[in-house]
Design a protein around this nucleic acid. Structure first.
Length: 300
DNA sequence: AAGGGCCTCAACCGCGTGACT
DNA sequence: TAGTCACGCGGTTGAGGCCCT
């Protein structure tokens, strides 16, 4: 049993004896921790907690620092690009949250894990299939991820030509035989929602869009796509990412992990009902849209 | 306005592993 | 080699906020 286990094995007694605090951190505690680390650095968390005068376990201090107080922690919604990367990396590594987090600068394993559980697993449940099942993984890989790509490209188009509403074109070259792109989304939806640019040309603000499953997301400028998240140094791409140069293009990165995505991949876009995800009749379009298509796919 | 249900996410827990003695 | 300590990871929990009725 390790130190934590030992603490836990007599947690009540130890906590009472040492007057250890649990639960949410106060501002004062945060400041103490920040100041202590600023002066002494990280590490040796148990002694750090003791010397800093925090009535917390070292474990608690470490978690608070790494997941919340660290200056480079990236706050805010998971972007479309990050969603895609999470799906992609999870398909390869499973629940290796810390490993996945290493490829999402500023995101913590805890945050990614929470995202997966609250968003992805929820939809697996709605589809009545296990999140680890082949069916769900196929749906993710062949339906959801292409849609994300498509939406990201739509956002890119929007930023490049913000006054134009573009209709994305199919590229069926590398699709499996059993996937018919024309059926991924019913035509009527395409006609109605084609690729609807979420970004307002006059505002220059980040595009507000729904995430993969319809949750509202504020996407960063599209430049993030090829500069931040896929700008892996070659040495960091030893596990499958193709990185012939330091600057890895988005499409290039999509090519290698599953071998599925290809350059120029361009599916029909899904809706970008940018403000409230409300379909024309007032129902929640995102849930219906995804579930309908996903059910369709699962039936194939 | 109230309350009940749902969702999110910060925090905790248990366990595995590596370093050190 | 065994015991101890420290750290990190993945799973789980629960408080609080939000939404719907």
């Amino acid at each position: 049993m390790d130190v934590n286990g030992r603490l836990c094995s007599s947690a009540t007694q130890s906590d009472e004896e040492m007057d250890l605090r649990r639960g949410p951190w106060t501002v004062e505690e945060d400041l103490i921790l920040i100041n202590y680390i600023a002066n002494h650095g990280e590490g040796r968390w148990n002694s750090l907690a003791r010397y800093a005068g925090l009535k917390r376990t070292g474990k608690s201090c470490r978690l608070r620092w790494l997941n919340y107080l660290r200056p480079d922690v990236r706050r805010g919604n998971i972007t479309l690009e990050e969603q895609l990367l999470i799906l992609e990396l999870h398909s390869r590594w499973g629940n290796r949250w810390s490993k996945i987090a290493q490829h999402l600068p500023g995101r913590t394993d805890n945050e990614i894990k929470n995202y997966w559980r609250t968003r992805v697993q929820k939809h697996a449940k709605q589809l009545q299939c296990d999140v680890n099942s082949k069916r769900f993984k196929d749906t993710m890989r062949l339906v959801w991820m292409p849609r994300l790509v498509e939406r990201i490209q739509a956002a890119a188009s929007a930023s490049n030509n913000s006054s134009t509403i573009t209709t994305a074109q199919h590229n069926t070259n590398n699709l499996p035989n059993n996937v018919v792109t024309g059926q991924i989304l019913p035509t009527s939806r395409n006609e109605d929602f084609g690729v609807v640019v979420a970004q307002d040309s006059s505002s220059g603000a980040a595009a507000a869009s729904s995430d993969l499953f319809g949750t509202q997301v504020v996407s960063p400028p599209v430049s993030d796509l090829t500069t931040d998240y896929y700008n892996f140094p070659a040495t960091n791409c030893t596990d499958g990412f193709q990185s012939g140069s330091v600057q890895v293009s988005y499409a290039d990165c999509l090519t290698s992990p599953t071998g599925y995505f290809n350059n120029g991949l361009d599916f029909q876009a899904i809706d970008q009902q940018n403000n409230n995800n409300v379909w024309l009749d007032g129902t929640d379009v995102s849930e219906n849209l995804w579930n309908g298509d996903d059910i369709w796919f699962l039936q194939q």
